[in-house]
């Protein structure tokens, strides 16, 4: 066996910092996207091979949304998916800049971190709003 990889810092004894929290969030949102992306694949599969099934699924979502608690569940699930996508996108751009050697200073990393959080929140609110508007229109 080759040299083992170093163990990640033990989260319990490690003081939370912008850099470490953004890093672990990048991983968590990446995992979340790997759970949500297959939903798109499965829906495409239904569209192609079982169009009536795709219609049924849309119908179930509408029924779920007409129930108060169902609507809460739908809202939270959509928010998690959208938040994950935007966070991973914006923080990924931050890491790309780091890879190019830009913004590696501690202050810059702090500022860009906050920038990512603000951009993610803004984009998520806009996306959720258009989703709700589109949903209300159906």
């Amino acid at each position: 066996m080759a040299t083992p990889r170093p163990l990640s810092p033990h989260m319990q004894i490690y003081r939370p910092q912008m850099t470490s929290l953004m890093s672990i969030s990048h991983r968590v949102t990446g995992l979340s996207l790997l759970v949500f992306a297959p939903v798109v694949s499965l829906f495409l599969f239904l569209l192609a091979f079982m169009p009536s099934g795709a219609g049924d699924v849309v119908g179930w979502v509408v029924v779920l949304g007409s129930n108060a608690w169902g609507a809460v569940v739908l809202f939270i699930v959509s928010l998690v998916a959208i938040w994950s996508l935007f966070f991973h996108l914006f923080n990924g751009l931050r890491y790309m800049l780091w890879s190019m050697g830009w913004g590696f200073g501690l202050t810059q990393a702090m500022i860009s971190g906050w920038f990512v959080l603000i951009a993610t929140s803004t984009a998520s609110v806009i996306a959720m709003r258009s989703l709700l508007v589109a949903y209300g229109g159906w």
Partner: peptide
């Protein structure tokens, strides 16, 4: 699996 499923489905469409 899911990459393949996506491509096959879109290809079929």
């Amino acid at each position: 699996t899911f990459a393949g499923l996506s491509v096959v489905s879109i290809g079929f469409l």
